[in-house]
Amino acid sequence: MRSVIFKAGARAVAPLLVLVSALLVVRGHNEPGGGFVGGLLCASAFALVALAEGVGAARRLLRIEPLRLVGIGLLVALGSAIPAAIAGFAPFTGLWVSLQLWDKASPVKLGTPLVFDLGVYLTVVGIALAMIFTLEESDDDAPAGL
């Protein structure tokens, strides 16, 4: 898998995939998409780089240990329970704010489900990459744990 075309293609496609994955998260509440799908797509971008240039390059590109990303994602997702709990509703009840930014007619709605989706996104990216990187590397020596 060290062909020049594949390498160059991966470099060009990977950022696009990350961008599309972010779009999927944002529109996911009402339309097809969401944190899980977005996370998988984003992970596939890094997996592409790992295939084209090796796991080391993909790890450097990610900059953060995948398992730590899982932890951060879980923290974000669990954090989305807090606003509802403080306001006196059942945990994870969706709370929304409407922001009138550029178009007065259609305000931007932001809410805790989006935060939860972001957490899911990070968690999925982390878990998927942890698995992919581990399996790619494990041909010589299987590291302990997942």
Binding site: I127, M131, L135, S138, A142, L146
Partner: peptide, 11 residues
Amino acid sequence: GVLSFTLVLVR
């Protein structure tokens, strides 16, 4: 998730 774990284990 569980199956990928099982495969690694069996391997």
